[in-house]
Design a protein around this nucleic acid. Structure first.
Length: 589
RNA sequence: GCGGCGGUCGUCUAGCCUGGACUAGGACGCCGGCCUGCCAAGCCGGAGGUCCCGGGUUCAAAUCCCGGCCGCCGCACCA
């Protein structure tokens, strides 16, 4: 007979959502008001799990690379200009029309351009709508009537302060926070490249129709790093590359995808050498990304890196890989995006903010640079042009030394520049020799970006086990939301209870997350603990009262050892780091 | 946003087609008590339900009709 919780549940996904709700991991938000699609709550154990996963990500991406990678935190709301600079405002306001017959949505501008062969750049929604009506543009698939042209915007919009003109947006990604703060971070970290700037935080995307539970949300958490590198020193940018060079990755390039080929196993080194991955750093962080997800209990064979094609990539990206994991319900889901963003964002923010976001790169030896300079006799220009003198000087500075030199060479009495005629005697060209100590470069950016909620979901699904009609969440020990359970063998013996409470308190004081439970039979309590994935259970029995030893049970094997109560703290610490149960005590039963 | 299917204690469900005896039943879980010397044992007692929401039809609606919300699947969308 199947266990009770199997009745009516058709697949793993349903069992998982039922378990997640029942035991307090996660569930849809605002349930008592009927729910709102695209929002999820984390419950007590869900928060613990999520926090441990985030902490592990920090360990892999930040702590282990602390001489190069730092973490910051920036606001969720940004003024409009930030997303104008980033290109998001533009890309998020596509004009869209729906077919009234089949309901399919189309980019209104693309449709008109295709159907009528005219450019519609810069036209308003009303104008686009009129063109569609006047020219009788129909649905390209079934010829159906088209509705009104509407703006389609995935940015959550709000206003900052009381004035309607001050538009703010909820960030749809974390990256802009790092770009905008780059100058400060760089300065506080001694102005050297490479530097990684990481962040964990909430973002919002106003999805059209979110579905797939926690896999597609309107508000979610991202763990992301922008790794800023010197565009001219590609080999020196990844000082830790060699440590991972032999790491085997499963990669499917876009050409392979188009041909329908399976992803192939490559070492990191091979992938970079063969240019399947265009950049060393991009590849390095992909390898770290794979190790990270493996450490959450997802086998390497169940994931791969899928390159996105030119038209599938975001507007900022030169190469992007989706790190995808196989799940029961939806096939492959993207847990991370690994993008080579080049200097796109940095140059945009430089243009919009007028701030200098370049990094000064010192040479090993100063270099002698010969340069031709335009020298202007400002006294002559000033007397001649009076109040226009400023404009004239500006125009002369803007002109290239070569242009001016050609005027001088032509023998012309004046130099025409910016609508002015400057006498040749006021200008001369000199060649100067200067020592250059370095140069300014605009950093390129490599970005590994993880969706926390998807990672949590994947971790949860891969931890799900059934054994003898019972459910076990076999989380890797170091991310288990609750680390240990303490039980008295029976629930009606005060001596056992006192001993158990005392051990429980010791573990809590030592910083562990522990549950104490003295209701029901011991078997029922083990089962309850297994169901929330507690890796170790300590039981106080009658022998404890005689010799101060306790039993320690392993969630995954259900085997037990006996060890002195004094050693429990140390044993638990070792166990959570991965030491086998047998090394921690003597076999029991 | 379009189409299909669905929504009943914490969870999984029975009931819906064929409206009335449904004061919405069960199982598991939960709480209290008894029992229990290691894997969801047993006994006794208890709490727990806006039958997704709103409107309509009817003497009478969990049940029929309409609209909405939410979920799943397919299409579209996912910079």
């Amino acid at each position: 007979m199947p266990p009770w919780w199997c009745f009516g549940l058709t697949d793993v996904y349903e069992k998982i959502s039922e378990l997640a709700k029942r035991r307090g991991f996660f569930w849809p938000s605002y349930e008592i008001y009927g729910g709102v699609a695209g929002f999820y709550d984390y419950g007590p154990y869900g928060v613990l799990l999520k926090n441990r996963i985030v902490e592990k990500w920090r360990d892999f991406f930040v702590r282990r690379h602390q001489d190069y990678v730092v973490e910051i935190e920036s606001p969720i709301i940004a003024p409009g200009i930030v997303f104008e600079a980033s290109g998001h405002a533009e890309h998020f306001t596509d004009p869209v029309v729906s077919c009234l017959k089949c309901g399919r949505k189309f980019r209104a501008d693309h449709l008109v351009e295709e159907a009528l062969g005219i450019s519609v750049e810069g036209l308003s929604l009303e104008e686009l709508g009129r063109i569609i009506r006047d020219n009788n543009v129909k649905c390209p698939l079934d010829g159906g009537e088209l509705g009104d042209v509407r703006v389609f915007n995935l940015l959550f919009r709000t206003q900052i302060g009381p004035y309607e003109g001050d538009i703010g947006y909820i960030r749809p990604e974390l990256a802009q926070g790092m770009f905008v703060a780059f100058k400060r971070v760089l300065e506080s970290m001694r102005s050297r490249l490479p530097i990684g700037v990481a962040q964990v935080g909430r973002v919002g995307r106003n999805e059209i129709s979110p579905r797939q539970a926690m896999v597609r949300l309107r508000e979610f958490t991202i763990m992301e790093m922008e790794y800023f590198i010197d565009p001219e020193d590609l080999s020196g940018n990844c000082p830790f590359f060699d440590e991972m060079a032999g790491k085997r990755l499963r990669v499917q390039s876009y050409t392979m995808k188009v041909k329908g080929e399976e992803p192939q196993w490559l070492t990191l080194e091979e992938a970079v050498e063969s240019k399947v991955i265009v950049d060393k750093c991009l590849g390095y962080w992909m390898a770290i990304g794979q190790e990270f997800v493996e450490s959450l209990g997802v086998p390497a064979e169940q994931m791969f890196f899928m390159e996105k094609g030119p038209h599938e990539r975001a507007h900022y990206s030169a190469q992007t890989f989706d790190q995808v994991v196989k799940v029961s319900r939806w096939g492959l889901i993207e847990v991370a995006g690994h993008s080579y963003r080049g200097a796109y964002d940095m140059s945009r923010h430089m243009a919009y903010s007028k701030a200098d976001l370049t990094v000064f790169k010192p040479y090993k030896e100063p270099v002698l640079v010969k340069e031709r300079k335009v020298i202007v006799d400002k006294g002559v220009v000033g007397r001649l042009f009076r109040d226009k003198a400023g404009e004239v000087l500006e125009a002369l500075q803007a002109a290239s030394p070569e242009d001016i030199e050609s005027y001088l060479a032509s023998g012309s009495p004046t130099i025409k520049v910016g609508g002015f005629e400057v006498p040749r005697g006021a200008v001369k060209i000199v060649e100067v020799e200067e020592k250059a100590w370095g140069k300014k470069v605009l950093p390129n950016v490599v970005e590994p970006s993880f969706g926390v909620d998807r990672v949590v979901y994947v971790t949860f699904e891969y931890a799900y086990r059934e054994r003898e009609g019972r459910v076990i969440l076999a989380f890797p020990r170091d991310i288990a939301p609750v680390q240990a359970a303490v039980f008295p063998l029976v629930e009606n013996d005060e001596n056992l209870i006192a001993e158990a409470r005392s051990l429980y308190k010791t573990l809590v004081r030592e910083g562990f997350q522990v549950i104490y439970d003295d209701t029901g039979s011991i078997g029922r309590r083990y089962a309850r603990a297994d169901e929330i994935g507690v890796p170790a259970a300590f039981t106080i029995d009658y022998q404890t009262l005689e010799d101060k030893t306790v039993t320690m049970r392993d969630r995954d094997t259900w085997r037990q050892v006996r060890l002195p109560a004094n050693n429990v703290v140390e044993a638990l610490r070792k166990f959570l780091k991965g030491e086998p149960l047998d090394s921690l005590g003597t076999p029991f039963k």
